[in-house]
């Protein structure tokens, strides 16, 4: 009798846990996923980037904004082939002081139609946050990008959670592009850190500049493991390709000195003790 009650309790608990974990998963995956085409990344994301969710793309410095925008544009180019809505780009006024503005010719070369962009430039952060939370309600949009600078105090956990919930409900791919900002807790489904990496030179012209190559860190992933990859753009296929990691350039930490501070995104999977 006693054991049966315990077993019942255990079943009830397991059920509750399953419900909790599904609550995060189900509404998001209802709107589909956007595959990267790189098996390692798609495996970590369970098949691709969830479309009805908030994702954060972060870059450490203002000069990295080119890489972060390139990464975003490539994703959007893939998505805009499937969905025919407008793309809303919301600029926080502080962000455009440092990094400037989008250049339509560059977007067009990545396969994104600039005519589909709607640029919103509010006077303050409140306006930008309002515009984003209003836009996420509109299911006709292909994607929303909220471009912020740094980690403003007004944009907190509550604001990201609101965006996340509405994105889940309406199936709008929402990005938070955080320029020169540090890692911060948020309700986003994933957080990426993007840095440019040296290209290997053009195929037909050795001293020239090759296709864009990025070093990606998946710093946070709600429903899966994190990871770190190096990807490069294949312009003829208009898709990213995985570049095998160059292990030679990475040095092991010396044994006789204190360990270096841990870096984000490098997760070592140890075998379980039990």
């Amino acid at each position: 009798m006693h054991a049966a009650t315990k077993l019942q309790d255990l079943h009830a608990l397991r059920h509750a846990v399953r419900n909790l974990s599904e609550r995060h998963d189900r509404p998001a995956s209802r709107h589909g996923r956007l595959a990267f085409g790189i098996s390692a990344i798609d495996a970590a994301l369970h098949g691709g980037l969830t479309i009805g969710a908030l994702h954060e793309v972060r870059c450490g410095f203002a000069r990295d904004i080119g890489a972060a925008t390139g990464f975003l544009s490539a994703i959007l180019a893939g998505l805009s082939a499937q969905k025919h809505g407008r793309i809303l780009w919301i600029d926080d006024p502080a962000s455009s002081l440092d990094a400037g503005h989008l250049f339509p010719a560059g977007l067009a070369q990545l396969g994104l139609d600039p005519a589909r962009f709607v640029i919103v430039r509010p006077v303050d952060l409140q306006g930008a946050m309002w515009a984003a939370s209003e836009a996420v309600k509109c299911a006709g949009l292909t994607a929303i990008i909220l471009h912020l600078k740094g980690n403003p105090a007004g944009f907190d956990m509550t604001a990201t959670r609101r965006l996340m919930l509405r994105a889940q409900k309406n199936g709008v791919l929402t990005f938070l592009l955080r320029q020169s900002g540090a890692e911060e807790a948020s309700a986003a489904a994933t957080r990426w850190c993007v840095r440019p990496a040296p290209s290997n030179g053009a195929a037909d012209f050795e001293p020239g500049i090759g296709m864009m190559r990025l070093s990606l860190v998946l710093e946070r992933n709600r429903n899966g493991p994190t990871g770190q990859w190096s990807i490069s753009w294949n312009h003829s296929k208009r898709a990213f390709e995985h570049v095998p990691e160059d292990f030679v350039s990475r040095l092991h930490s010396p044994a006789d000195r204190p360990d270096s501070p841990p870096q984000m995104g490098q997760v070592v999977a140890l075998e379980r003790a039990s």
Binding site: G66, S96, A99, G100, H101, A105, G106, L107, Q109, M212
Partner: peptide, 13 residues
């Protein structure tokens, strides 16, 4: 043929 990537995506005013 695809366009060559000769223009930036971000642009200083």
């Amino acid at each position: 043929q695809t366009l060559p990537l000769i223009r930036p995506v971000f642009f200083l005013n």
